[in-house]
Design a protein around this nucleic acid. Structure first.
Lengths: 212, 212
DNA sequence: GCCGCGATGTATCGGACCGATACATCGCAC
DNA sequence: GTGCGATGTATCGGTCCGATACATCGCGGC
């Protein structure tokens, strides 16, 4: 998952570790709290070893003017390579059970603007399926096995069930939008407060390419 | 987290691994999918080594009648020890940042009927604080940095924000209930379908003890 | 003028947990 | 009688987290 996210972000701009973490947190803030450096740096090494990213040695502007103040340990800026872009395309298109889990789905969704419509639809439907199953499990629990559980556990289940029902509805709307080729703007009841009148919806159909 | 959950479950009844996993899945179904055996068995060993649980060697009823069919590798039933109960009490009462994360909170909440009211309140308020901070982060993102993100990422954030707002409201109700000493039954709009008219609410105030 | 302090920045280590896999038994349907 | 799904125990490699360490930068306060 981290691998996919890093490759995706570096496709937007070269970055160093710290920056990458901030962007990651911004993009995936709704999914997970914050990526740990204990995951980030080892993964960066792995990706570099695989040849998917490369160090871009922070061009020191005028290298001879500021040669070595105190043997500056410069920030290590990473760039995605051609192989890295291929790898990203491969990862983003392949779907499996882990694509439909909470984290996996979130990461894939966050890069939907770089995903073709067929894959988007496949992922949304797979996720819906997964949540529907979770929902059914909770319904069963609240129905049949209710007397075996204490009031707090039941309340937890009930809250979880409600969250499932809500997410299924959300996914339904996204799927409908996706099928009709519109941008991912869901009509809402007006609670959650994002103004976002006309925020450059991606051309309804194909993967958006970056301008180089 | 697993440690706490196992100790908590074994306090209700002795169990073997497989059963433990099923009960774990039932109790925490709203939180996490299913505990992996790759976590469960090593943890059981660890707990046994620490003296918090003990093997109860599945009484073979009439041991001499069915001596050794094919050198039966019996199920290993675990029981919680007195030290284990102490450990559980200690773990359930101590709160820290990890108590307020998604998984940590879920596990603690699932054992609220074995938690005293003061701790329950502390956990609920800590969780609310955590979610409020996450909510503010998302609000900021949707406000200030909106134009930097694509429509899909924004939609993800918006959905996450709504979930936060919803959970805060849920927590408010639970906190109010807790303060008024009532059972955790929240009045709802009627959507999520749990019938649960009068399901033995725990005596409003103290930790419920098991009947031995 | 300089001092502390929070933000920026890179890095490692032990541990928790997962997913895949292996293997053996039991009960039942076909 | 045999195959197959549920029950049951167990390990291995890999991902990710949380704590920790350490160095620099810029800025406000004294």
């Amino acid at each position: 998952m981290l691998e996919l996210a890093i490759l995706g972000l570096l496709q937007e701009a070269p970055m160093h570790g710290y920056e990458l973490r901030k962007e990651l947190t911004a993009k995936l803030g709704a999914i997970r709290a914050a990526i740990s450096y204990g995951s980030l740096y080892p993964t960066l090494r792995r990706l570099q070893a695989a040849g998917w990213i490369a160090e871009a040695a922070e061009t020191p502007a005028t290298a001879e003017e500021v040669p070595a103040l105190t043997s500056r340990r410069g920030r290590v800026v990473y760039t995605i390579t051609a192989e890295g872009k291929e790898r990203f395309a491969q990862l983003i298109a392949q779907t499996g059970p882990e694509t439909y889990g909470d984290t996996g789905f979130g990461v894939h969704f966050a890069f939907f603007s770089r995903t073709d419509q067929a894959t988007r639809l496949r992922i949304l439907e797979g996720r819906r399926r997964t949540i529907e199953e979770r929902r059914e499990g909770l319904r069963d629990m609240l129905g049949r096995a209710a007397e075996r559980l204490d009031a707090y556990t039941l309340e937890l289940q009930r809250h979880g069930l409600e969250a499932c029902e809500r997410e299924v509805r959300w996914l339904e709307e996204l799927i409908a939008n996706e099928r009709s080729g519109r941008a991912p703007t869901v009509p809402h009841d007006g609670t959650a407060g994002g103004r976002r009148e006309d925020n450059s919806p991606p051309p309804p159909g194909e993967t958006r390419k970056e301008r180089p």
